[in-house]
Amino acid sequence: MNESKMDLNRELMVDGNAVAGLLQEIFAIEMTATPTECANCGNAAEVGALQAYTQAPGAVLRCPACESVMIRIVQTPNHIYFDARGAVRLTLPREKK
């Protein structure tokens, strides 16, 4: 993409890495190396490679291939709302005993 053609929203985009702390708070494990799959186009990517938009009341993670919304996270004083309907799955590592 040409720098001069980038719109403001695109410039605000960061990576899934930017919500690593929040995800670790929710799942209690490191999540950015977790494989995930887009429900819209089937693209496989690690959570850290998703496009992240964080300058809003919630965080939105989009597919880096088709830009569909995969995960939405909203925090209120008493709850965390985690909506991952745009992701087919998140593959979490199992702790070895």
Partner: peptide, 8 residues
């Protein structure tokens, strides 16, 4: 809090 992140 940290260290955080396992992707980059």
């Amino acid at each position: 809090r940290g260290p955080i992140g396992g992707y980059f």
